[in-house]
Write a protein that binds this DNA or RNA. Structure first.
Lengths: 189, 189
DNA sequence: TAAAAAAACTAACACTTGTTAGTTTCCATG
DNA sequence: CATGGAAACTAACAAGTGTTAGTTTTTTTA
């Protein structure tokens, strides 16, 4: 296990605070107190508050993008791809509970990187939609508006960060499987 | 149609701003500018910023509570009750897109009313879970952990406020029906 | 152990925050 | 037209904001 740098520790603690109160409501003095130092000392390790948010969100967004690229490139059928998307969300959410909160709730406070983030998100949703449309065309899944279907599945997956922490003894494979059953069986002909 | 008081107008405009940036990131000067007046003038109509948030969130939470009570009291079966819950969320979300954002994202900034809000939410979720458990016991729905089931359905319904505004020509009955098909067919034996 | 580098500190800055006090303007009612 | 109340205004407050400068302490390296 690689040892955590002070900078990484600050970012991890910041993500935790951001989850509880949101980016705007967390002050640099709050963050410093949680680190056991003074606010000014944070700046030996990080560039700015904004930069912390950017680091948290962009790294996660890129992780999702990469996962989607791999799923697209695989030669599974539509349902198989959907199952792999579920696994992707379960895995990333479980590894980064706090960061997922920022990704979901504080992306609008990105400044220079806002457009880039939105591009990644739009691309991700378009790829997702395309998988559903392919499945509809091939008769693999039922013919309901793909928009509603994607909305339903994606909002569930995007909220995993809220729910995973409540289950003390979480089995990720079991969770993926339950979600698959709930989310897919409903659209599987 | 009842005419809107200035106070109601301020709360409506505030909810819109809260949706875009979150409660903490919206200043009273932002709100005043959106109203076309100076910040100090707001205080002729409202008690405090905190009070605006409280009004938005608590009225909505109570609306959900009331809806759930009626559904509970009805003598429909489990699936029927779930369908009525879906309709309840679609209806309230559509009538109060902006307020739903605060309910979902800014409840932690409630101060005196935080505990009361949490009680309403917990009660709502317990009632929801009980409906699912009854359905499982009677064999009406599949035997998957009700926690996962409730999480999946409820997060979808709670995110409707994000999605409804994107559809220009929204037909509420059709939306409820599509959601019912997606959310229920997956758990209907 | 001395020197260098890393990481903490104090003090302060310029600006923004929610809110209050006191005053002026607008407008419907007598 | 006079008047009283509603609703706007200006000015200011005390506290809190992110961040910088300069200094001291701690840790690592040679």
């Amino acid at each position: 296990m690689k040892i955590e740098t002070r900078q990484e520790e600050i970012i991890r603690v910041a993500a935790k605070l951001f989850k509880e109160k949101g980016y705007s409501a967390v002050t640099m003095r709050d963050l410093a107190k949680a680190m056991g130092i003074k606010a000014a000392s944070l700046y030996n390790h990080i560039k700015s508050k904004q930069d912390i948010l950017k680091t948290i969100i962009i790294s996660l967004a890129e992780e999702f993008t990469e996962g989607m690229l791999q799923i697209q490139a695989s030669n599974e059928n539509c349902i198989g791809k959907l199952n792999r998307i579920i696994e992707l969300h379960v895995k990333i959410s479980n590894q980064n509970i706090y960061g997922m909160a920022s990704l979901n709730n504080d992306w609008m406070h990105l400044e220079e990187k806002l457009e880039y983030y939105q591009q990644l998100r739009d691309d991700y949703e378009n790829d997702f939609r395309k998988i559903l449309e392919t499945g509809i065309a091939s008769g693999e899944i039922i013919n309901i508006k793909p928009e509603v279907m994607m909305f339903s599945i994606l909002t569930t997956l995007r909220s995993l960060y809220l729910w995973i922490p409540k289950k003390e003894d979480i089995n990720l494979d079991e969770l993926s499987h339950s979600l698959s059953q709930i989310l897919i069986k409903g659209i599987n002909k």
